[in-house]
Amino acid sequence: MSFIELKNVTKEYVTGEEKVFAVNDISLNIEKNDFVSIMGQSGSGKSTLLAMLGGLTHPTSGKVVTDEIDLFKLSSERLADFRREYLGFVFQSYQLIPYLTVLENTLLPLIPCEYSKSEQMAKAFSILDKVHLSDKAKRLAEELSGGEQQRVAIARSLVNDPYIILADEPTGNLDSKTSKEIMHIFCQLNDEGKTIIIVTHNKEIEMFANKRIYLRDGKY
């Protein structure tokens, strides 16, 4: 059995009297340590697919199984625990909490866990070292450049040591040099055994992936 399995997953929205299929009957398997790119035009269903992989959006039909856990059979609380344990999210607009420092943003996923302060600090600084932001730990997130904010977002997604990184257009707001730096981090993470699933428009990023998924009108 694959690490992640999507079985006949459909997500349908009703707009007035019209049904729109954001994702239409997709089945796919993703193995541990895969680097997956999901590409497609705007509105092709990439982000919806990523949201379902992350247990954020319930499919209208079909199922998503990760590590033999049928995500949408879990209660909302257990699903929250699953996200904390298995997943790290990286968003296009970084989605940091602007009034918290770099360190505090990085520590966020650890708050619901039973770590002591020293354990929290050790984990956060080891990740911030990895993304070269230890020296800016006390700065407010909103004071950083776009590339730095995205590195904080990556640090936050890694601090819980998740199995899977889900990234939605992680380089969408960055220049090409910073994009390369970010992609370098993702490659490094993949080398360390993380499963990376990236939604992107960028064909250069696609080159890093060992599995490529093209979506058109919600279909694979």
């Binding site: 609380e77 929250a80 625990d81 904390r84 989605q95 996923p109 619901p112 997604s157 819980n160």
Partner: peptide, 8 residues
């Protein structure tokens, strides 16, 4: 954001 990173 908090809910997506695992806050109950």
């Amino acid at each position: 954001i908090l809910k997506s990173i695992g806050f109950r």
